[in-house]
Amino acid sequence: MTYQFLQIEQDAQVATVWINRAELHNAFNTQVIEELHTCFQAINAQDDIRVVILAGRGKSFSAGADLNWMKAQGEASAEENQADALKLAKMLQSLATLKQPTIARVHGIAFGGGMGLASACDICVASTDAKFATSEVRLGLAPSTISPYVIRAISARQASRYFLTAERISAEQALTLGLVHEVTAPDQLDAKIDDIVQAILLGGPNAQASSKQLIQLVDQHVLNEELLIQTAQHIAHIRQGIEAKSGLTAFLNKQSPSWIKTTA
């Protein structure tokens, strides 16, 4: 299949999905989300693929949502807004529930939805230059659809800090938080990922798929349709609000949002 914003490379049993919107730091809009969802569904049906690597072209893994797209959705009808948010929720679910083991190859920034993508993968390997953030509150938004995956990765206690402060998280901090499994020098990133790939290939594919299902079964926050709808409703409601519209407009115009008070 031909994609506009993705490049798929397959080397034997390993598929690498490159998000290819480098000029915008691989920020995603409706089309990128739809392409990722379609791609993950197709890969899930391929028995010749044993491991999936998710990566970003250019300087960054992913800056998350394209803010012009988010602003437009906030101005759409309530029904259109929620339907669009649900597409993002379902795309993340399709990544998180792939039968194949998944590895996030993170370099540069992984903000907002980019941190969500990294959290939805089974394994995350980051270069020392990687930076993470749930940056939504600084735009008047909330990390709604990514929350099941980020909270699962770093715990609710840590999320209660980073969801509220939107502080940037270094690769080493992400390792401590449990978001990242390995941190390596940029020129060693692919070698470290290959080590993990080779370890995965030693296991049985059906056993690994079953093990992934087991983790979801045992984990207290099982992903289901109700949770997807709830998180989609959550972001759809917030981005139609005055604060989100103000925050997105201010960011796009390189201005301070209305809730930041300047002193004389």
Results as ranks from 00 to 15, higher is better:
residue 28 F to H: 03
residue 191 A to N: 12
residue 50 R to Y: 10
residue 126 A to V: 05
residue 26 N to Q: 13
residue 80 E to T: 11
residue 152 R to Y: 07
residue 241 G to I: 04
residue 249 T to S: 09
residue 227 L to C: 04
residue 121 C to A: 11
residue 20 N to L: 03
residue 59 K to D: 08
residue 163 F to P: 01
residue 29 N to M: 08
residue 174 A to P: 03
residue 193 I to K: 01
residue 122 D to N: 14
residue 126 A to N: 02
residue 163 F to V: 02
residue 95 L to F: 06
residue 138 R to Q: 12
residue 203 G to V: 08
residue 75 E to S: 10
residue 208 Q to S: 13
residue 217 L to V: 10
residue 214 L to Y: 14
residue 103 I to V: 12
residue 25 H to E: 10
residue 180 V to F: 03
residue 167 E to L: 14
residue 194 D to A: 10
residue 219 D to T: 10
residue 155 S to P: 04
residue 30 T to D: 15
residue 213 Q to W: 08
residue 134 T to I: 03
residue 19 I to D: 00
residue 134 T to L: 05
residue 182 E to V: 09
residue 82 Q to S: 05
residue 144 S to F: 00
residue 257 P to T: 05
residue 238 I to P: 00
residue 45 A to E: 15
residue 97 T to Y: 04
residue 152 R to L: 09
residue 97 T to S: 11
residue 59 K to H: 12
residue 176 T to F: 07
residue 251 F to L: 11
residue 190 D to W: 04
residue 204 G to W: 07
residue 179 L to I: 05
residue 161 R to K: 15
residue 85 A to S: 10
residue 264 A to W: 13
residue 219 D to A: 09
residue 16 T to R: 09
residue 31 Q to D: 11
residue 117 L to F: 06
residue 160 S to E: 13
residue 193 I to W: 00
residue 2 T to M: 15
residue 102 T to G: 05
residue 103 I to W: 00
residue 108 G to D: 00
residue 194 D to F: 08
residue 185 A to Y: 11
residue 30 T to Q: 14
residue 123 I to Q: 01
residue 29 N to R: 09
residue 182 E to N: 12
residue 42 A to H: 14
residue 89 A to W: 02
residue 66 D to V: 05
residue 73 Q to E: 12
residue 165 T to G: 08
residue 134 T to C: 12
residue 116 G to N: 04
residue 186 P to S: 13
residue 166 A to W: 02
residue 139 L to K: 00
residue 89 A to C: 11
residue 3 Y to R: 06
residue 121 C to Y: 00
residue 122 D to M: 06
residue 211 S to Q: 15
residue 145 T to V: 14
residue 245 K to P: 03
residue 235 I to W: 00
residue 227 L to S: 05
residue 76 A to Y: 02
residue 105 R to W: 07
residue 160 S to R: 14
residue 223 L to H: 06
residue 212 K to A: 09
residue 130 A to C: 06
residue 97 T to N: 09
residue 169 I to S: 03
residue 72 A to R: 06
residue 38 T to R: 05
residue 167 E to H: 15
residue 126 A to M: 10
residue 3 Y to D: 06
residue 124 C to F: 04
residue 70 M to H: 01
residue 66 D to S: 12
residue 107 H to E: 06
residue 86 L to R: 02
residue 222 V to D: 11
residue 252 L to V: 11
residue 202 L to I: 12
residue 181 H to S: 12
residue 148 P to Q: 07
residue 127 S to E: 01
residue 94 S to F: 11
residue 218 V to G: 13
residue 247 G to I: 02
residue 3 Y to V: 07
residue 27 A to K: 01
residue 83 A to C: 09
residue 190 D to G: 08
residue 161 R to Q: 15
